[in-house]
């Protein structure tokens, strides 16, 4: 066992970090969100530099791809890293240009970047369906939760081999959880930094033990989520591990959101402050996985079905 990033992983994340510091981040994210736009430029750069190929590459793999997904989300990259870096390669499919969306549970509700999406992955029983989308037919849906949403209209579709739905759902759970982990960590870091800078009652806000304990508890949650996600990715997204990672992460993000906003005070409740760029998107991620309940049920099903 070795929980430290390898030199390869470290180099990869450094390179990706550098790329994202130029092509993503809060300002870029605000500007794109204003227009409800997907970041085609970022996607092209990620593709050019090989980050979309990590999953199946020789010197990297699914875990590295998952680490990359986490970092892209933390830096608010306005792309769809979960399908591009994890799900499509896991299914052995080509990665089209532009956003790819999914519906894990019945007909597609509003999905992120749906207005520009060209492909929909749909889990239907144990079948997986790939549908082409007509962006012109998509119906944008207003949302306050960071991502531009739209209902999509599938044009024609093809079915993949039986049993592939599990691959879609499991990797999507791992990927969305990796995104959430990256975003939770960023929200927490921002809050911790704020408590060091802010003075109340002639002391730093972070010097109050009541807050120290709460911040510490949040770090436990995020770390737990992080290792569950990495482990699931490392093991190839088995059903139970993926569901457990998602169940824990989707529960953790509720508490993390509440606490970071609370500890930040009024400033964090304004749209001028950056905290909401992560926390609102976190709620959207949970909704995308069918709320906190979906993964919890799946985790229990996977466990008890396996035991029987």
């Amino acid at each position: 066992m070795d929980f430290d990033p390898s030199p390869t992983q470290r180099a990869l994340l450094d390179a990706l970090g550098t790329l994202l510091s130029r092509s993503a981040g809060t300002d870029r994210s605000r500007e794109l969100a204003e227009r409800g736009a997907y970041d085609h430029v970022l996607e092209a750069v990620l593709r050019r530099d090989g980050f979309l190929d990590l999953f199946a590459s020789e010197d990297a793999g699914p875990l590295e791809a998952t680490l990359a997904v986490e970092l892209i989300a933390a830096e608010l990259g306005a792309v769809t890293p979960v399908p591009h870096l994890l799900v499509l390669p896991a299914l052995g499919l080509e990665q089209p240009a532009g956003p790819v969306v999914a519906s894990l549970d019945g007909p597609a509700g509003p999905v992120r970047y749906g207005a520009e999406a060209t492909q929909l992955l749909l889990a239907d029983g144990d079948r997986c369906v790939v549908a082409e989308l007509d962006p012109a037919a998509a119906e944008p849906v207003p949302s306050a939760y960071g991502y531009p949403l739209a209902r999509v209209v599938p044009a024609w579709h093809r079915e993949l081999a039986a049993g592939t739905a599990g691959t879609l759902v499991n990797w999507w759970r791992v990927g969305a959880s990796a995104e959430a982990v990256g975003m939770m960590r960023r929200a927490l870091d921002l809050t911790v930094a704020y408590t060091k800078d802010r003075t109340v009652f002639r002391r730093s806000l972070g010097s109050f033990q009541a807050l120290q304990h709460r911040l510490a508890e949040l770090s436990v949650l995020v770390e737990g989520a992080r290792w569950l996600v990495y482990e699931a990715a490392f093991n190839g997204a088995p059903a139970e591990a993926s569901a457990v990672a998602a169940a824990h992460t989707m529960t953790a993000l509720g508490r993390l959101t509440r606490e970071t906003h609370q500890i930040m005070g009024a400033i964090g409740l304004t749209t001028e402050h950056d905290l909401h760029l992560w926390t609102l998107r976190l709620q959207a991620q949970r909704a995308e996985l069918g709320g906190g309940q979906g993964p919890r049920r799946a985790a229990a099903d996977a466990r008890w079905a396996a035991a029987s």
Binding site: G109, P110, V141, S143, Q283, G291
Partner: peptide
């Protein structure tokens, strides 16, 4: 709620 819950 599902993603419906996000609709403004």
């Amino acid at each position: 709620g599902t993603a419906r819950a996000l609709v403004k």
